[in-house]
Amino acid sequence: MKLTAEQVKQIEVLLAKDIFYKDIRLEMTDHIASYLEETLAEGDDFTTALKQYMNSHHKVKLLTAVREQEKIKDGYYRNYFLRQFVSPKGLLVIASATSTIYIGTLLGPWMYRVCVFLFTLMVIWFLTGFLGLKSQFILRLKEEVQVYYLLPVLLVSQGRRYFEEWPVLPYLEIIGFGLMFTACYFIYLTNKAYKTTKYA
């Protein structure tokens, strides 16, 4: 018995809360739909069959598979993100960002505030999808490590309060901001890699 588009949609909706990655979710939807099409005879009730599947060991096995696949995908994108920092292009971006901020600090003390403002704006941008740039990479990171990814932001923003007398603090701030802006750019590139998924 072939499933209708509405029935397929029902499966996808049920999986949505358990599966983060769209491509994995669509593949699992197809798996369940194929199973139900094979086991359901004409006239059988789809909703009851789906409910039975979702409460059976099949779903547990399916979610075990999903967690494994998510681990593979997380690792792939994490490496994709981190590898960029040690590439020649990455080092160039870090150097450019740090130099620009350094030159800015020579122009006036307002540079620090500009950097904090811009970085906060970028974090909001990635999290809320402002201008259509919602970052799947950050959303996944947030899901995995809660809010701890915001620690660097907190460290830089609170650094002045606790280490004001430290002579190297301004330089560390410049390097810190340089790295954070570079990370923003690499998050943008990693997000682009997410979007090249063949389920786009």
């Binding site: 072939k2 499933l3 209708t4 588009a5 029935q7 397929v8 491509d23 669509l26 593949e27 939807t29 197809d30 739909a33 099409e37 593979i72 792939y76 063949k198 389920y199």
Partner: peptide
């Protein structure tokens, strides 16, 4: 797939996407 040994093709089959 991540090791580059498999390639994927996605097609719409019976009201859903199939990999």
């Amino acid at each position: 797939e991540s090791e580059g040994l498999l390639d994927v093709e996605v097609e719409r089959v019976d009201n859903r996407l199939r990999k």
